[in-house]
Write a protein that binds this DNA or RNA. Structure first.
Lengths: 204, 204
DNA sequence: ACATATACGGAACGTTGTTCCGTTTTTCAA
DNA sequence: TTGAAAAACGGAACAACGTTCCGTATATGT
């Protein structure tokens, strides 16, 4: 411990390192916000999140100067988790099954984010960065699953991940009125569509 | 004026008639709300609307117990105006032109209601009545235009007004990012699609 | 151990939706 | 025309929210 651990630090040398309590509070805040947003929607009061995290309101605003910053941070984290699930599923299942499972995982993610979708289209410029992040993370994740499944011959090749993402997002919209199975059925239908022209089998 | 005008009144006899100032204020409120919502979106403060209408806040809440009631009233009125436009246009133009003009009119309506669409999907149960009203008023309006145009042989017959309404609503969504002409082009494309199989002309 | 940068907590401010009630205005009958 | 009574008005007052501010507490590095 006496030796200076010459850690890779992108910042200048003179800076102190982040205080331990600050990091701890930030983690607690993100966890609390995720839980509260899931339970009460993105319109939940900041005070409620602060209380659940066991910190003062000032601490919330130190880490997230605006309410929207907290929402964005949680959103990014959940997008990351969804992208990460692609790798996990790819390692644990065969390509076709991994793709199918991920699509349902993604459907759940979209369905749960209904309230956030409303905020997204509310015109607030703070949220303009979200769609691009969404694409940047999720398109490669899905594309890798699609490619693997196509290579294994269980789905047709050459289908754009972007289109599939958008299609599921759109199809998930009415699933709140038509029941939760509706989105599931639509996604399964899309998957069957992908399987249709799979491999060398199609006669035409 | 001395004779009692035995007006058709659906209510019981004993009731007084609505006070003149109440009716005047209600009209002023609706006009003010329409203007303010158009200028600043549906999130505009109630106080601003009250001031523009020249009434106190209490008066607003007498007529519209909740903020959402005011939004809903304005929405209904604009839906009514859009439905009414179908009759006006049908009387003033030939069927094909009337249909085309109404579609653009409807597109403008949808494009202007972006902020409201966000509120609509925000999960607030107060707005649940809006979609059905929307359908009930607009589907017959468009259907009459479609039928007339089909009878005149300028568009194909048998296309459902419901589908067309939904398609335009969906297509208008990206027109805020891709410029206002985008929606226009898409609607024109839809109209050309309708014209394609018109009358007895199609060879196939 | 000390000095200092850093982070914390929560009171306080401005803005919102909504409620409440004393006051004003309109209506109807005599 | 006049005079209650019903109806409606206006805006002060309340509660809840997002956000700012600053005195206090605490971790960090010498």
């Amino acid at each position: 411990m006496s030796g200076k651990t010459a850690g890779i630090r992108p910042e200048e040398e003179g800076k102190r390192r982040v205080r331990a309590d600050a990091q701890r509070n930030l983690d607690a805040l993100l966890r609390a916000a995720m839980a509260v947003f899931a339970a009460s929607g993105v319109d939940a009061p900041v005070r409620e999140i602060a209380e659940k995290a066991g910190v003062g309101i000032g601490t919330v605003y130190r880490h997230f100067p605006q309410r929207s910053d907290l929402i964005i941070a949680v959103f990014r984290q959940e997008v990351d988790a969804c992208a990460e699930a692609a790798r996990t599923l790819a390692a644990a299942h065969e390509p076709g099954e991994a793709l199918a499972r991920w699509m349902r995982r993604y459907l759940d993610f979209i369905a749960a984010k209904r309230g956030l979708a409303a905020a997204l289209h509310s015109g607030d410029p703070a949220y303009e960065v979200l769609p691009s992040y969404f694409q940047k993370r999720l398109v490669p994740a899905l594309q890798s699953l699609l490619d693997a499944a196509a290579a294994a011959g269980v789905v047709r090749a050459g289908f754009a991940a972007t289109d599939l993402l958008r299609a599921v997002a759109v199809l998930a919209a009415p699933s709140q009125e038509l029941g939760p199975e509706h989105g599931r059925r639509m996604v399964d239908l899309l998957l069957d569509g992908l399987r249709y022209g799979a491999g060398p089998s199609p006669g035409a």
